[in-house]
Amino acid sequence: MEDVLNDVVSSEDLKKFESVYHEQLRASHVTQKAQFEYAWCLVRSKYSADIRKGILLLEDLYNNYDTEKRDCLYYLAIGNARIKEYSKALSYVRSFLQIEPANVQVQQLETLIKKKMEKEGLVGMAVAGGVIIGIASILGLGIAMAKKN
């Protein structure tokens, strides 16, 4: 749990805030608070289906209420980064930084997302590199065998 992208919600917490939200949903009166708290737990779930649901709830809050848009943007960026929707995640970070360019917390999130992308990009290259080495060694083997003959 070393950074905001690896922080996973406990199942008790998820259940707790889920039941509050669902109770309010049944009573047809969902408060902004309950929706945000539930969404905040969902985007920290280890299951991507939960994260996607959290993103929908946050988008709904962002579009329908004027307050606390910065909270929504921040967790929309985290949620999207966690399901590897990096370009979306970065677009939320950028909209945030347009309003608060000096915000260190969000700058750090941007660095974290970019690092994660880089890491995964490098993994992709390593696989490609492996294939090239494979082909090269077959060629090498072929040449060596040809020389023997």
């Binding site: 070393e2 950074d3 905001v4 922080d7 921040y74 967790y75 608060e100 000096a102 915000n103 917390q105």
Partner: peptide, 8 residues
């Protein structure tokens, strides 16, 4: 600025 949620 005010921290959002939790930082590490």
């Amino acid at each position: 600025p005010h921290t959002i949620g939790v930082e590490f």
